[in-house]
């Protein structure tokens, strides 16, 4: 195994030019267990991006907030900016693994790992986060729901990395819900985030729901929210969720449990928001 720790994006690009099959290492909390479980997994060239200063820090502008790729989950949790503008993301950081993992795990790592159960993802989806990518061919920005394409799959090319995440500021409120088999250190059985605004007449002004662990990627529950938006009753429209999700049986729960539990909890929380 070879190890490189470039000190700038330029140095990283030189590595891209001279090597193929680089394995990017950020916090390592997913890469290392995967490698130890499966030694045949080739990690010939490891590129540690933690020494690249351009990837660090949370910056606030008038219209949006830019989160550097290497921002750890604990940094997000402690950030007043995140807590103020994006409650669902803040709430997800509180339920994310334990302190030691949160000290290492990065936001870009959680996104690039592209787990259907990634806890930061639903909040990023409902706040319309955009992924900033940099590579040999230049820069590009892609909305998160287009960035993640399947279980562990993203559109990232082998000569590109995520440099940051941009989230537009808004007055939208949001919340995060996670069901795990225990309160901490649990991989979500079901998780979701809801972003919403309600006008003075108690009607939805906007509503977006993104759910995890119920499909190969986090998905927007669009049919369900459209129905609510057009004034349908929650108790009736909740059944539409079944047409949108495609949960599987796994070690943590069965598909039918996931389907049941997401509908029950969603219904409960939507009613609660509505009453508020």
């Amino acid at each position: 195994m070879k190890y490189f720790a470039p000190k700038s994006l330029e140095e990283l690009k030189d590595l891209f030019l001279s090597n193929h099959d680089l394995n990017i290492l950020a916090g390592g909390t997913d890469v290392l267990p995967r490698w130890q479980d499966n030694p045949s997994l080739k990690l010939d060239v490891l590129v540690d991006i933690k020494k690249i200063p351009e990837l660090i820090g949370i910056k606030e502008s008038e219209t949006d907030i830019k989160i550097g790729a290497l921002t750890t989950v604990q940094d997000l949790k402690k950030s007043d900016i995140i807590k103020k503008h994006f409650s669902s993301i803040y709430e997800a950081t509180c339920q994310f693994a334990g302190v030691q993992i949160r000290h290492r795990a990065t936001i870009a790592g959680n996104i690039c790992n592209a787990s259907p159960a990634g806890d930061l993802l639903p909040g990023l989806y409902v706040h319309n986060a955009v992924i900033q990518i940099s590579g040999l061919k230049g820069e590009r920005v892609v909305p998160i729901h287009q960035f993640i394409t399947g279980v562990g799959k993203t559109i990232l090319e082998s000569d590109e990395i995520v440099v940051g995440i941009v989230i537009p500021k808004s007055s939208i409120k949001s919340l995060f819900y996670k069901l795990g088999l225990r309160q901490s250190m649990a991989i979500s059985v079901v998780n979701f985030a809801i972003a919403y605004e309600i006008d003075e007449n108690n009607n939805w002004k906007s509503l977006q729901i993104a759910a995890g662990s119920v499909a190969p990627t986090v998905i927007y529950l669009k049919t369900f929210t459209d129905a609510l938006f057009s004034g349908s009753d929650v108790d009736e429209s909740i059944q539409l969720v079944d047409d949108e999700i495609s949960p599987i049986d796994d070690i943590r729960a069965t598909a039918s449990y996931r389907s049941k539990v997401i509908k029950n909890v969603l219904m409960h929380i939507i009613k609660e928001i509505y009453v508020r």
Partner: peptide, 29 residues
């Protein structure tokens, strides 16, 4: 556990607790 679930390998790295089983020695230069 060797995969960051149990915390038995906890050490303090630059003032923060971490799981030393999930870090390579080269990373801590």
């Amino acid at each position: 556990c060797g995969e960051g679930e149990c915390g038995a390998c906890t050490i303090v790295l630059d003032g923060k607790t971490v799981n030393s089983c999930l870090i390579l020695a080269v990373e801590v230069d």
